[in-house]
Simulated assay, not measured.
Amino acid sequence: MRTPTADLEATLAVNVTGVVNTVSAALPQVIARRGQVVLISSVFAFLNGMGAIPYAMSKAAVEQLGRGLRVELADHGVSVLTAYFSLVQTDMIARGVDEDPVVMDLLGALPKAMLKRITPAQAAAGIADGLEARAARVMRPNLWRPVSAWRGFLGPTLDSRFARDRRILDVLARLDARLSTPPVAVPAAPSRRNKR
């Protein structure tokens, strides 16, 4: 993993610290109304985060936040819903995933069932259904439920398979090379003061 430390810290600042700060600010009102907290995690909370380790780390942290809050707030009548989504078909995914040939090569090496996408409307409906039921978790697509339930067995099995898959390893090496290549310095334009 050659992700710059600054990138890792920025991801954690937004996806973990930002979530904690938001929940903390809203919590007095949520408790007063015996309301609900919604956290957006990801299937990457329990899936191997190869190629996206900072993101996966942050979503695993959000999952743990949800689990802890669920117990800590139970006596206040507050429920905590954690949503786990796979790829949601948004402009961000279109630009950051679909237009990146290296990322697409990595996704192409994964089992096809893992690549099923959902729409923003499906994600929103999942959250609405979870809130209505005061559920602890919601997953979309639903195929991730058994993967999450069996993560103690499936995780190590898939990790071992991925670690031996030459196609995956080659794509990860390309991602690492891209991250470790220093940006090309562009010479600064001469200052107007230097022109006489």
Rank of each mutant, 00 (worst) to 15 (best):
P101E: 08
M104I: 08
P146G: 03
A123T: 06
G130M: 07
A121C: 05
N142D: 12
A124P: 03
A124L: 04
E132A: 15
L131K: 05
G126W: 04
G130N: 09
N142P: 06
M104A: 05
R137E: 13
T119H: 03
G126R: 01
T157Q: 08
R161W: 15
A121R: 13
R164V: 08
A121F: 02
S148Y: 13
W150D: 11
P101A: 02
P156T: 07
W144R: 01
K116Y: 06
A109E: 10
A109I: 04
L110A: 15
R151I: 11
D105W: 01
G126Q: 01
P146M: 07
L110P: 01
A149W: 14
A113W: 11
V102L: 09
Q122S: 07
G152H: 14
D105M: 08
P101F: 00
P101N: 01
P141L: 03
Q122V: 10
R151Q: 15
M139G: 00
P120D: 06
R117Y: 06
R137M: 08
A133L: 15
D129H: 13
N142K: 14
R137S: 07
G155A: 09
W144F: 12
G130K: 05
D159Y: 08
F162A: 12
M114E: 05
A121Y: 06
G152M: 08
L131T: 10
N142L: 11
D159Q: 13
A136C: 10
F162H: 07
T157V: 12
P156K: 01
K112I: 13
L107P: 03
I127C: 06
G108K: 01
R137N: 10
L110K: 07
A149C: 10
L158K: 04
A163N: 09
P141S: 03
P146Q: 06
V138G: 00
G155N: 05
A109G: 14
D129Q: 15
R161L: 15
A133D: 10
A133V: 09
L143Q: 10
A124Q: 01
A133G: 12
I118L: 07
R140D: 04
R117P: 01
L106V: 04
M104P: 03
G126P: 00
L131M: 15
G126M: 01
I118M: 10
A136N: 14
R161P: 02
P120Y: 06
A163Y: 05
A123D: 11
A163D: 12
T119Y: 01
A149I: 14
W144P: 00
I118W: 06
K116R: 15
V138Y: 01
G130W: 03
E132N: 14
A109V: 02
V147I: 15
G155Y: 08
G130L: 11
P101I: 04
P156A: 10
P111R: 08
E132F: 04
M139R: 09
I127H: 04
L107W: 09
S160I: 08
A121M: 06
P111V: 03
A135I: 11
W150P: 00
W150Y: 08
G152A: 11
E132L: 09
G155R: 03
R137I: 02
V103Y: 07
D159K: 05
P156Q: 06
A125W: 00
D159S: 12
A163E: 13
N142Y: 10
K112V: 14
A135W: 08
D129G: 13
R134E: 01
P120C: 05
A109F: 05
W144L: 00
A113F: 13
P101D: 02
V102F: 01
V147P: 00
L143W: 10
F162T: 02
A121E: 11
R161H: 08
D105A: 14
